[in-house]
Design a protein around this nucleic acid. Sequence first.
DNA 1: GATGAATGAGTATTCATTCAT
DNA 2: CATGAATGAATACTCATTCAT
Lengths: 192, 192, 192, 192
Amino acid sequence: MEAIFGASARILEQGGRAAFNTNRIAEVAGVSIGTLYGYFPNKEAILMAMARAELDAARDRVAAALLDASSGVHPARRAVRAVIETYATGGKVRRILMETLFSHGRSEELARPVGEIADVLVAQAGNVLPTGPERLGPVGLYVLTRAIDSVARAASYEGMSFAQSQAFEDELTRLIFVYLGWPEDKDNAPRE
Amino acid sequence: MEAIFGASARILEQGGRAAFNTNRIAEVAGVSIGTLYGYFPNKEAILMAMARAELDAARDRVAAALLDASSGVHPARRAVRAVIETYATGGKVRRILMETLFSHGRSEELARPVGEIADVLVAQAGNVLPTGPERLGPVGLYVLTRAIDSVARAASYEGMSFAQSQAFEDELTRLIFVYLGWPEDKDNAPRE
Amino acid sequence: MEAIFGASARILEQGGRAAFNTNRIAEVAGVSIGTLYGYFPNKEAILMAMARAELDAARDRVAAALLDASSGVHPARRAVRAVIETYATGGKVRRILMETLFSHGRSEELARPVGEIADVLVAQAGNVLPTGPERLGPVGLYVLTRAIDSVARAASYEGMSFAQSQAFEDELTRLIFVYLGWPEDKDNAPRE
Amino acid sequence: MEAIFGASARILEQGGRAAFNTNRIAEVAGVSIGTLYGYFPNKEAILMAMARAELDAARDRVAAALLDASSGVHPARRAVRAVIETYATGGKVRRILMETLFSHGRSEELARPVGEIADVLVAQAGNVLPTGPERLGPVGLYVLTRAIDSVARAASYEGMSFAQSQAFEDELTRLIFVYLGWPEDKDNAPRE
DNA sequence: GATGAATGAGTATTCATTCAT
DNA sequence: CATGAATGAATACTCATTCAT
């Protein structure tokens, strides 16, 4: 039921996790609680489903950015930009969703999309990327992808003033370059 | 009250956050609930106080490792090692504590010790470090310190098999070297 | 829920306000607390609803007495008698209910039925009453009705020995007569 | 301890009965709770003592007004005026105090000062009053004194707009005159 | 007398979940 | 399939009172 997701998002946005209760969700969604339980086994399942959808969307956005050859911007920079933008949007709800996953010990879930991006990276090596992450072992790949993701997330959630600045994008991009042993990126492509 | 912290830790360890209720804490700590509320204004305050203590301890451990000149191991590697060890210990409780801070929007609190480590780094530049992070702007410093911390934490909480491996330590150390433009570290110092 | 009112009355009668707690009410009423809260938003609402019902019943009793032409007793005396009887019954519960209204600053609620009686009085002037309270301004009407009500209540709640005596009824009736400038009432109708 | 009464009054005035707790009283009064319990056996005792003091003060004020021959105003009117003024002052605290007495079934306490005024009335009959309440039996005296007191209180606590008007004073005064069979009072003495 | 740390019984209210209709 | 009335376990927190110092 799409109505349930919509209602949940609205409630989460307005009242935070505290206001998120099944009776309220059913009311806002315009269905009965019985119906709600027909679609989801329990409250957490709703949050989980939303979190996964959110994660998939983010992964798709980053993968698309990586593969999009239409601009002259370097793929690594495009990916960094997509990650930053992802954390800049979604606000409160996104954060609560991530939290839910984390507190349920589902960090692997959180990790999944990042890993999938890494897969795309490897598969496209030599194609979208000059010389690629295939030179990295699995540990190196983990460190690199997780670093970009984590640092972008931290900057956003810690409310750092530079979280969406060009300088921040530059630094994250540079991290990729130096870590992969690429020569410096010169295309300081300004964000539109 | 030390007893309260001890009891809280035990309860958190065994039953997780769900089992963490004031009546139980008082009981396990061997004090009355009234006394509990004499020391803490509410349940969350206990968690917050514990989290801060934990964070301070972690910061001290990493700072000490950074400044400890007794071994022949490179300071950057010593720091990486301390960070990894910190996340390897503390288990469930530590994790719940961090979560609490995060879900209360106190990400800055989480960030504080990392920032303090960065301060130590800068202060000691040219002393413990050959040429140092003073070359980095604030954004670069943020990216570097947060990356090390976040990636080490992610690997631990996601239960990655290599979370405490030599290879992982190497990669994180290498990240620092390449990011600071240092020549490769050769002292692949084995962990004790 | 009638069961809730019944249970509340019983509890109030036996244990007073101190024993009046939601868990107990639900238990005695044979419903779950959840159900209780389905019908009333909070504990006070139960008391309020009961108080209003009580007040309405009292008003109806007095109004009926006033309009009842079946006996040869003077309407004013009939009303006085009804008021006295009202305070003589209901005991502890009635008292606690009135208190609740009063302590919630809802004195107007307490006043309402008395005002409604005054309305009946004015409407029926020249009909049930020889020459009537229409000669009184609003202030005079207030003083008269409130005096009868308050004095009867005081005598009852202060446990005065004469609270239900003929002499007391006579005095209150006389108060009405002299206040309205009527000639003395001679029908000292004995209470059955 | 005067400090305790003062603190209690302040707390009652500001936060109502809900804010009235022993720890708070001790704090505001600047004494320890232990000391508080050295002077009063329990919380209610404080309220009771305050209520009695308030009642005595009111009684003294009315008695003084009754006996004060300095003005040309009729003693009955002077008493009515004093009663009205008493209820007009004291506000929230006075009300809570009266409530306490009432809800503890100490209505007799509430009645006491009124009875004492009646005693003064009888004792001074033929002196301050032309022909007096000695013609009334005890029931009549009760009805008269209680009526004046109750109606003045009701008007004040129900927030009637005329509670302090000349018209209200006139009506209550007239009640006394007609009840005692006195010829109409002509000295519509304006309130200062 | 004064102190104030400690006590702990007591309670209103919430909300996930069920299941008879 | 949908409904929503009913359930009741669970819990944070208050505050009058005590008593060792």
